[in-house]
């Protein structure tokens, strides 16, 4: 099998000098795909994503982007390399307008950003309507759109979302998933951590079930949804 576009390969590590949280965990995503990390609380889902993004110490294993080893790079350097990351909380500049949020997203770019901004507005039309409003005044779902839009402004080669639907209502969640699928159709690989395992696996091309920092099950979203073991242990039957 060819090398995936982005892969966190057999990663073991933890925060600072603390104990290991991840154990030989592997996560990968390819262009046009949505890969979803699911698992019970405390399974290390977000931790695995942060490891891929360089926010914790990976003691063994490696992270490779487009064939290049980026294990030693800081998160900021990874942004420059083309990784877009949307944190779970505090993921927008609340006191700044929607448009300024997008501008700040493109801070590392020196070229003309108006084209990208138009693309983001096309994806999230509501943002165009509210472009001069402070982002902090928007609703939960709209804030998440700002957050994703901000990350898209760097024209990343891969987009990583940490629980994008945390704390939003089911209707908004469906809408957000629709948007994410739309983003994925542009060919951008998406790696996502999700609490709502069933819905997430339904849209996933690839699913990773983590338990206690280890890969428990891996497969396509459909396979995992069909797997009786997976259903029984945490999809609730």
């Amino acid at each position: 099998m060819a090398e995936p576009f982005l892969i966190g390969d057999t990663m073991t590590g933890g925060y600072g000098k603390g104990p290991d949280i991840l154990h030989e965990c592997t996560i990968a995503v390819n262009p046009g795909e949505i890969a979803v990390i699911v698992g019970p609380n405390g399974a290390g889902k977000s931790t695995a994503m942060k490891a891929v993004f360089g926010m914790l110490d990976v003691r063994s294993g490696s992270v490779r982007l487009d064939g290049e080893d980026i294990t030693g790079l800081s998160p900021q350097a990874r942004v420059v390399k083309g990784m877009g990351f949307v944190p779970q909380t505090n993921n927008i500049f609340t006191s700044m307008t929607v448009e300024e949020n997008l501008e700040m997203g493109a801070f590392i770019r020196r070229d003309d950003i108006s084209g990208t901004m138009e693309q983001v507005y096309d994806l999230f039309p509501i943002l165009k309507e509210k472009r001069y409003q402070a982002a902090g005044e928007l609703s939960g779902g709209q804030r998440q759109q700002v957050a994703v839009g901000r990350a898209l402004m760097t024209q990343p080669k891969v987009l990583m979302l940490d629980e994008p639907t945390a704390g939003v209502s089911p209707i908004v969640m469906d809408e957000l998933f629709d948007r994410i699928i739309e983003v994925s159709r542009t060919g951008l690989p998406i790696l996502m951590v999700e609490q709502n395992a069933r819905q997430a696996l339904e849209i996933a091309d690839k699913g990773y079930v983590l338990v206690q920092g280890r890969n428990a099950y891996t497969g396509t979203g459909k396979e995992l949804l069909a797997d009786p073991e997976v259903r029984k242990s945490f999809l609730g039957g």
Binding site: P75, V79, N90, M96, M104, R150
Partner: peptide, 16 residues
């Protein structure tokens, strides 16, 4: 960028 940094330090770092 100063306002962004004042608003949300971590996100400002993430934005480069």
């Amino acid at each position: 960028s100063m306002r962004a940094y004042s608003d949300n330090e971590d996100l400002a770092l993430l934005s480069g």
